[in-house]
Amino acid sequence: MNLTIHWTFLPHTDADASLAFYRDVLGFEVRKDVGANRMRWITVGPSNQPQTSVVLNPPEAADLTGDERKLHDQLIAKGNYMLVFAADDLDKTYEQIHAAGAEVVQELEDHPYGVRDCAFRDPAGNIVRIQQAD
């Protein structure tokens, strides 16, 4: 069996702010932008990986009740949704994202288990963790 990651979904709470983060800060290309206002799906991904995409998904699409939406927003704010990337030059990547004004969750850190990484929060509150590529 040969499986590849094709799409993954990540909630957004403000389509324009999320688009600006993933396109302008992380440098992803926009592959699709469909819908309007609060019902907008934006597909982005790294230009050198056309087979892998992140779909920024509106929470309204899930038809949540008021209490469910409140819980959903709390889960986002606590960082329960996460993407993990690898970078060839983590220090340079960290500096570029930090300079763009992204909220830092964890500065560059060398962990005792051999991983060097950092973490940011996207405009919705999702965690974007980046580690040094091997």
Rank of each mutant, 00 (worst) to 15 (best):
H111F: 09
I76F: 06
L56N: 05
E29C: 06
G27T: 02
G27K: 01
V105F: 00
G114A: 12
I42W: 00
L83T: 11
S18C: 13
N37I: 01
V34N: 07
A62D: 10
G79S: 06
A36V: 06
N48R: 11
Q74W: 00
G114T: 12
M82C: 13
A17R: 13
V105T: 10
A124S: 15
I76H: 07
P59R: 07
I76E: 08
N48M: 05
C118A: 10
K32E: 13
V54F: 02
A119P: 03
L19C: 07
M1C: 11
D67V: 06
D67F: 03
F21R: 05
D89P: 05
W41I: 10
A99R: 08
D117Y: 03
D134W: 10
R31W: 04
Q96W: 00
L26E: 04
W41E: 02
Y94P: 05
G35I: 05
D14I: 06
D33C: 07
H6Q: 14
V104G: 09
F28R: 01
W41A: 00
H98E: 11
I130K: 06
G27N: 03
I5C: 11
T52A: 10
A17N: 07
D134M: 10
I97V: 15
D63M: 07
K78D: 13
T4P: 00
A62I: 08
N48E: 14
G125L: 08
I42T: 09
P58R: 04
H111N: 14
A102Y: 02
L71I: 15
D91T: 15
Q49A: 14
Q96R: 14
R38Q: 13
Q51C: 02
G114E: 11
V34M: 09
S18L: 08
Y113L: 12
V128S: 04
A20G: 02
P112H: 12
Y81S: 14
G79A: 08
A99E: 09
K78I: 03
A17S: 12
T52E: 02
E68F: 01
A20N: 11
D16H: 08
L108R: 13
A119T: 06
V104D: 06
D16N: 11
W41N: 01
T65W: 00
T8V: 15
V84R: 09
D67R: 12
Q132D: 06
T4M: 09
E109F: 12
D63H: 07
D88Q: 13
L3K: 09
C118L: 05
P46H: 09
L19D: 01
V44A: 03
D14C: 09
Q131F: 12
A15Y: 00
I130S: 06
I42N: 01
Q51S: 14
K32Y: 03
H72A: 14
V25L: 00
Y81E: 04
F85E: 05
S47K: 12
A124P: 10
Q49H: 12
